[in-house]
Design a protein around this nucleic acid. Structure first.
Length: 516
RNA sequence: GGCCCGUUCGUCUAAGGGUUAGGACACCACCCUUUCACGGUGGUGAUACGAGUUCGAAUCUCGUACGGGCUACCA
């Protein structure tokens, strides 16, 4: 038996690649890496009602951004393909037929109308969701109730039918979940799930078991919402391949929104992303925001996600992917669902931005500057070593003020463009002729300054202030407002250093009249 | 309704019978800084409830409550 860890999700990001889905992928990935195993991606694309154009590409883009690309998939190949469920159709039917022959499943010929009629009839306050179970099946049109020749005739005529599992009565099915330990179910209380649909396609229940077997999956992780259908899967394993060959299951706790399971709606409603990357629904034109486009670093996103339901037992909270691979353990994954907190997610990103090197952030700043600038066209980082150097020099001054990657230009814009409006109101009340004179003299002082360097500028500034009989502190705010336009930003003399002698004196000159 | 899973500060969590129940986010205060942040120090704040086992329970057992999931020819 090969030691593989497998992952599966729907091609629709709606169902598959929200926060919880990516975390499932992440835990799969970490577990596979730790055990030197294979991380397999099987695409579920059978449900027409949910199939989304572009979803498969989106899945790979997202996983690439997160650094979670699989070892085997539709894109990466592998020995157990095809990896698209719709391309595996033939084999499912054969297994379903075998179950019927062996007496573990049966044909059901009930029409959708008949099913609905049954449900309406049985529906009551004590039974709001009637199921097709061991009691109900006795009254329905299937190969257990119909005479054999009638069944044969139906099949020969090609009457639409499904194959349902025949749930045994009074048995206890149990299995050991990697996270929850022993979980057991009374088969009398489980319904006869459809295994093969009328169109010949398998349901998830059949497909997952058959594929896990054929792809030699040893560990299967999925969300907790699948726990209640686990008895069906265990039974199918028992009937088809033997329980011994069954993969080890791990049902991961859910990621919760403000109320219940986190949904796409929650994101729009409460103003935070729920997808890793922007998802553009080509059918509805709806755009669902992603962490990437909101200015998250992949390392921060992955770190945040990993900590939603797992910790290493110490007080460490910041983990790189390599550290996660090293320290992750299934035993320490929580049983209870975790409510997503965007504030904490922002904190992770802030921490990782502070840990990102200046060169990388400098590139990012340059990119954003180019994007924001209307005057510069065709400016590329490679073509402007001077500009890149400036950007990289700015980063140490601003990086700890950025929560999002998208903040860098916003925090640094005044280095590139003189403020259009200055907060003169903050200066005027305390403005006087002496101060004005100070700044006029400051211009000359700065022009003749020998070393254009933060500390030297500061000394010149303070000496001049003292000589003018004004406290240096009272002059710093006006100076700041002249340079950046408002009461914000890094230390003012360091700003002046990067701005350069010419630009600094120019800004003083230009704003001085506005304070009168 | 039935079945399954769960329950420690507002949130994420540590403590696998003996701790003043620890940390992080958020919040508040103070310090640093004559800007705004960062940072530093401190503070508010939790074992859902009830029984039982035990010298001793957040931790083990049972019950109750609450929360979540599932209950489709969706995944």
């Amino acid at each position: 038996m090969k030691k593989n860890v497998r992952v599966r999700f729907a091609p629709s990001p709606t169902g598959g690649l929200h926060l919880g889905g990516v975390r499932t992928v992440l835990y799969n990935y970490l577990f596979a890496r730790q055990h030197n195993g294979k991380f397999i991606l099987r695409i579920e694309d059978t449900d027409q009602s949910r199939y989304m154009p572009g979803a498969e590409e989106y899945i790979f883009e997202t996983l690439a951004w997160c650094g979670l690309l699989p070892d085997e998939s539709t894109k990466h190949g592998g020995g157990f393909g095809p990896y698209r469920q719709s391309e595996r159709k033939v084999s499912y039917k054969q297994y379903a037929e075998r179950l019927v022959t062996d007496g573990y499943a049966y044909y059901a010929f009930d029409t959708p109308q008949e099913l609905e009629a049954m449900r309406n009839e049985l529906k009551s306050d004590v039974n709001p969701n009637p199921q097709y179970d061991r009691l109900v099946r006795k009254k329905m049109k299937n190969s257990l109730t119909l005479p054999a020749d009638e069944v044969k005739a139906f099949l020969q005529e090609g009457t639409p039918h499904v194959i349902r599992i025949k749930m045994p009565e009074g048995e206890t099915v149990s299995f050991t979940d990697m996270i929850r330990g022993e979980v057991s179910f009374d088969t009398s209380l489980v319904d006869d799930k459809v295994l093969l649909k009328a169109d010949g396609m398998p349901t998830y229940h059949l497909a997952v078991v058959v594929d896990d077997y054929l792809m030699q999956i040893s560990h299967a992780f999925r969300g907790e919402e699948w726990l209640s259908s686990a008895p069906v899967h265990v039974l199918l394993w028992r009937y088809l391949f033997g329980e011994k060959a069954m993969p080890q299951w791990a049902h991961l706790p859910l990621i919760l929104g403000p109320n219940g399971k986190l949904s796409k709606r929650d994101g729009a409603k409460y103003g935070f992303p729920v997808f890793a990357m922007n998802w553009n629904d080509r059918k509805t034109g709806e755009l669902t925001a992603g962490f990437k486009e909101n200015g998250f670093l992949p390392v921060a996103f992955v770190n945040m996600l990993a900590m939603l339901g797992w910790n290493d037992g110490t007080e460490q909270e910041l983990f790189s992917m390599d550290e996660l691979i090293q320290k992750f353990s299934m035993e320490r994954v929580h049983k209870a669902g975790a409510k997503f907190d965007y504030e904490k997610a922002k904190w992770f990103n802030h921490e990782w931005i502070k840990r990102t090197d200046d060169e990388t952030l400098g590139q990012e700043l340059l990119k954003q500057y180019v994007a924001h600038s209307q005057t510069t066209e065709n400016v590329l980082p490679e073509g402007h070593p001077e500009l890149l150097k400036k950007c990289t020099a700015i980063i140490p001054l601003i990086k700890e003020r950025c929560t999002f990657l998208t903040d860098v230009y916003q925090q640094a814009s005044f280095f590139f463009i003189a403020p259009k409006e200055v907060d003169a109101a903050a200066v005027k009340p305390k403005w006087n002729a002496e101060k004005k004179k100070f700044f006029e003299e400051l211009i000359n002082e700065l022009l003749s300054l020998q070393h254009w360097q933060g500390l030297a500028i500061e000394n010149a500034f303070k000496n001049l202030a003292t000589n003018s009989g004004i406290k240096p502190g009272e002059l710093q705010l006006p100076f700041r407002i002249m340079l950046v336009g408002g009461k914000f930003g890094p230390p003012v003399f360091e700003i002046a250093e990067i701005l350069g002698r010419e630009e600094t004196t120019l800004r003083i000159e230009n704003t001085l009249p506005q304070f009168d």
